[in-house]
Amino acid sequence: MRCLGILAVALGVAVGGGASAQQRYDGVKIKVLSTNSAYDLELKKFAHEFTEKTGAEVQFDLFGYAPTVQKVSVELLTRSDSYDVVYLGSEEFGRYASGDILEPLDNYIDMKSEDVQDFIAPVLRLYNKDGKQLAFPHFAATQLLYYRADLFEKAGIKQPPQTWEEFRNDCDLLRKADIQCTALRGQPDTGENIWFWGQVLYGFGGKYFANEPADLTPTVNSPAAVEAL
């Protein structure tokens, strides 16, 4: 992704306002490889504004999550120049953070600018290695529990569950009232399963490593982790 510098400079122009004749990138095409998600589909709508301010044209190639991860892996490991910007999940970042695969953005963007400070600091640090910012967060997400108060009342449940044990017990009560309990992500993929399972793992008192980042001994076979699974 050695062409990232072009995008970084262009992005600085777009964020900062109008571009001078020296700052425009007419004729430049920026190819983006990412997921076919609400975030990217919404971002794609603003591509024309980016082009108006910088002169650079943005082309999006969007795929499902699993195909995107596979395609990004091939692009980065073969050091292909087919794409200038790629989606890189935080769980995959460590694989590519070394080896001069990703272009540091510090030389192109003022990391102390107000625009950069708008990012959530801990999320921004996920993509920083050895003091160099190798990427910017695309989005940060968490999980929420939605529930139907009327169905809870029908099943005799007085309040939403506070623990996973209560969650499991509530499911039993709902099923006894002939009500389907819940829907969860569960396909065999890091983005469809392991990402979700993390909250269950920590909820049961488990963790992935003994003492991250000092001790990366896997602890997914601990009693708490096994119970969570």
Rank of each mutant, 00 (worst) to 15 (best):
Y146D: 05
G12N: 11
Y202W: 14
R24H: 12
G191Q: 01
F204V: 05
A141Y: 06
Y108F: 15
E91P: 02
N36G: 05
N193F: 15
Y83R: 01
A47F: 04
R168T: 11
L88P: 00
V15I: 14
D84T: 07
R95M: 09
E75T: 15
Y147T: 01
Q159R: 10
K129W: 08
V32F: 02
G198W: 12
I109R: 07
Q187V: 08
V200D: 10
V13T: 13
V32K: 01
G18P: 15
V116D: 01
D81K: 12
Y39V: 13
M111C: 03
G99C: 10
S113C: 10
P122T: 01
D170I: 05
D84G: 05
A121N: 06
G94I: 05
G5Q: 05
K132M: 12
E165F: 11
D130M: 13
A155F: 02
A155L: 00
D106I: 08
D106E: 12
Y87W: 05
S98F: 11
Q162W: 01
I101A: 02
R95P: 00
D61Y: 07
Q159H: 06
D178N: 14
A56N: 06
E75I: 14
L144N: 04
L62F: 09
T51E: 13
K154C: 00
R168V: 12
Y146T: 02
G205L: 13
L174N: 03
A47G: 07
F46Y: 12
G64P: 06
I157S: 01
I6G: 08
F167C: 05
E91R: 10
L43Q: 07
V32T: 08
D81C: 13
G18H: 08
K45P: 04
G94Q: 04
F136H: 03
F209N: 08
T190W: 06
F93E: 01
L134T: 03
Q23D: 13
F152L: 02
A56R: 03
R2I: 09
Y202K: 14
D170S: 10
G17N: 11
E114N: 11
K129M: 11
L229C: 15
E212F: 14
F63Y: 15
R95N: 10
D110L: 08
T163W: 04
G17Q: 09
Q59I: 15
D150Y: 02
L105P: 04
R95C: 05
A135N: 02
I120F: 11
D84F: 02
L201K: 04
K31R: 15
D189N: 09
L11I: 05
L62Q: 06
Y83W: 04
A19E: 07
A8F: 03
V28F: 09
Q70V: 10
I30K: 01
V226E: 14
A135R: 00
I157C: 02
S80H: 05
